[in-house]
Design a binder for these strands. Structure first.
Lengths: 110, 110
DNA sequence: TATTTAATTAAAGGATAGTTTAATAAAGAA
DNA sequence: TTCTTTATTAAACTATCCTTTAATTAAATA
C-alpha cells in the first residue's frame, strides 16, 4: 500500500480544480507547459507552480526537449488512491446491497 | 459525476493523515468524538476540527445522542473519487497491458 | 550578436489550514 | 444545584497555499 506521505501529496494535489483539469488534458496526450496553461485565465507562473505540485506528487513526469518541457501523465498515484478507496468498498457494497455490485460489474464488463 | 466543489472538498479532506486515520477507525464502526480523538497526540479541539472538515466533505455524518456525537462513515464521496479515478483506468490498463487487467480481475473475484 | 520563445525563480501579499490554550455550552449524575 | 463529561467556539499564532508582477535562464532563430 502507498505510504502516508505519498497519499498526502496525491490527495492534496488532486484537491485543486486547475490541477485536475491539467490531468484531464494530459489524459488525451502529453503537452508542454504553455499548451497546458492556455485554457486558464491565470498567469503562466501560476500554472507552472501547479505543474510542479503535480510532478512532486508523481502524477506527471517531465521530459526536456530544447526549451520545451513535455509533461506526461503518470498513473501510479492514481492507482494508489484507487487501491486506498477499495479498502472501503465492502462497506458501500454492504449498504447498497447486491444491486450496486451488479451495476458495477456491468460497468466493468462494458 | 461529482461536481468540482464536492471533489475539491473530498480530496482536501483526505489529504490529511489524521483524517484518513479517523475514517479507517470509523470503517470498524461508529464512534463518538472523544473515542476518535483518543489515539492522537493532538488536543481535542484539533480533532474536533478534523471531524468538522470530514463532515463538511460528506465523508461522515453525526448523530446527536445526549452529550455524545456519534460519528458514522459515509461512503458516497469515496465512491465519487473512485468513479473519478476510473476515468484514467484505461490509460494504466494500456500501459501495463493485459497482465494488470488480469490481476485486478482476480482481486475482484476473490 | 540580438531577438524571440518557453519556462522557471524571486519577491510579495492575501487567504486558508492546523494547532494550541482558554472559555463556553449542553447534558447527565451526585 | 454543583460537578463532571462531552464537545464546540474563540482567539491567537505559525505555516503553507495560491496568485501576481518582475526578473532571470536556456535554447532557438534571425
Amino acid at each position: 500500500m502507498a505510504d502516508d506521505d505519498s497519499l498526502n501529496a496525491t490527495f492534496a494535489a488532486l484537491a485543486h480544480p486547475t490541477r485536475r483539469a491539467i490531468l484531464t488534458r494530459l489524459a488525451k496526450g502529453s503537452a508542454n507547459v504553455n499548451t497546458l496553461a492556455e485554457p486558464f485565465e491565470m498567469s503562466l507562473p501560476a500554472v507552472s507552480n501547479h505543474i510542479r505540485v503535480l510532478e512532486q506528487a508523481g502524477l506527471i513526469s517531465r521530459e526536456k526537449d530544447a526549451q520545451f518541457r513535455l509533461c506526461k501523465l503518470e498513473t501510479r498515484p492514481l492507482q494508489e488512491i484507487s487501491n486506498w478507496t477499495d479498502q472501503y468498498r465492502h462497506i458501500w457494497d454492504a449498504r447498497f446491497g447486491v444491486m450496486g455490485a451488479l451495476l458495477r460489474n456491468m460497468k466493468d464488463t462494458d
